[in-house]
């Protein structure tokens, strides 16, 4: 399958300013900080792939998608979207890209019903009336917006708005779709509707998706995950591999009779928590010996036990907190 997106060694820096102190004239004594929003990021996306772009706030996700959509120009490196430079050929590429910016930068006209924005999009992208009618019918059914798309946008709930934002971004049937946190603040039914629509559009029309999200549940719709941290790519692979890469431990939870505290467990793995009658242990799979486990669970001191593979959200939470401890600043300080 040909690549729809090629990102090669892309870097982007921004200037930010920090007050040196809190004095009356602190605004005039600012310190310039050059932030490396992207630092040599490379990846590619094949046609028909759904890729989740993960990362914490400030990790470079938004900068990345704005670079891919031609809004930002990279300082160095190369970005190619459908074979074109998105910054130089922004208007040409815009015909084949659909962008959902989430709730922060809506595309729907706030005082008008979404149907007005849909018709505007139809004319801007030169969609024929016949195609428009068919596509609108398709989206109305797929996203269940029949009761909302003629109401004023400002009267819609966030979930309803997000679904309509999606229609406005996709009515021209783009080849490549970028969604920036499309499910943030959206309730479960609406989120499921959006996920269903993404899968259906890929299946029916071969659309390619790049989705940034903080909602771990959204990752389930992705074929691949690209993870950024402080502007650098730290992971690129299938969701399953994320687990094996960042979670080497299996969680063993044991409840004891008579307030036993699991003495000697620290030799088996990392004690996550320990209190009278309960211990939680992170064990490397190689350390989980069958014989030891059998002895443990048949012991008359053990009331109950549980072995868990950590979920994606706990893997990410643990990963982020471990990065915080050993983070090296990617910022380059310079006096203003």
């Amino acid at each position: 399958m040909p690549n729809v997106i090629e990102v090669e060694n892309v870097s982007k820096r921004f200037n930010t300013y920090e007050n040196r102190d809190t004095g009356l004239f602190s605004s005039f004594r600012r310190k310039k900080k050059v932030v490396r929003a992207l630092d040599g990021v490379s990846f590619s996306i094949k046609r028909g792939e759904i890729v989740a772009l993960l990362g914490r706030n400030g990790s470079g996700k938004s900068t990345m998608i704005k670079t891919i959509t031609g809004i930002l120009h990279p300082d160095s490196g190369k970005v190619s979207v459908l074979g074109l430079d998105p910054w130089r050929d922004r208007q040409k590429i815009a015909m084949d890209i659909g962008v959902v910016f989430g709730a922060t930068h809506p595309q729907l006209y706030w005082n008008l019903p979404p149907i007005d924005t849909f018709e505007y999009v139809r004319d801007v992208y030169g969609v024929s009336q016949k195609d428009y009618n068919e596509r609108l019918k398709f989206f109305i059914e797929l996203l269940d917006i029949s009761k909302v798309y003629k109401k004023q946008t400002r009267q819609l709930s966030l979930g309803e708005r997000m679904k309509c934002e999606m229609v406005a971004a996709l009515l021209h049937f783009p080849k490549f779709v970028v969604m920036d946190e499309p499910t943030i603040g959206v309730d479960l039914p609406a989120r499921m509707g959006i996920k269903k629509a993404v899968r259906e559009l890929r299946k029916r029309y071969g659309m390619t998706f790049l989705i940034t999200t903080h909602v771990v549940d959204d990752i389930s719709m992705a074929d691949r995950i690209v993870m950024l941290e402080k502007g650098k790519k730290i992971f690129d692979g299938k969701p399953d591999r994320l687990k094996s890469t960042f979670s080497r431990y299996i969680i063993l939870e044991v409840r004891f009779i008579d307030g036993e505290s699991g003495k000697g467990f620290e030799t088996r793995g990392r004690v996550i928590s320990s209190e009278p009658g309960h211990v939680k242990l992170g064990i490397l799979p190689s350390m989980l010996k069958e014989e030891w486990l059998r002895k443990l669970i048949t012991s008359d001191k053990v009331a109950d036990y549980r072995i868990n593979e950590p979920g994606l959200s706990s893997i990410l939470a643990r990963f982020y907190s471990s990065r915080d401890h050993r983070s090296k600043s990617a910022d380059v300080d310079a006096d203003e």
Partner: peptide, 14 residues
Amino acid sequence: RSGSIGSSLIRPMP
């Protein structure tokens, strides 16, 4: 200032 210029730049018009 708000960064919403991005919503306009994704359209195929100057």
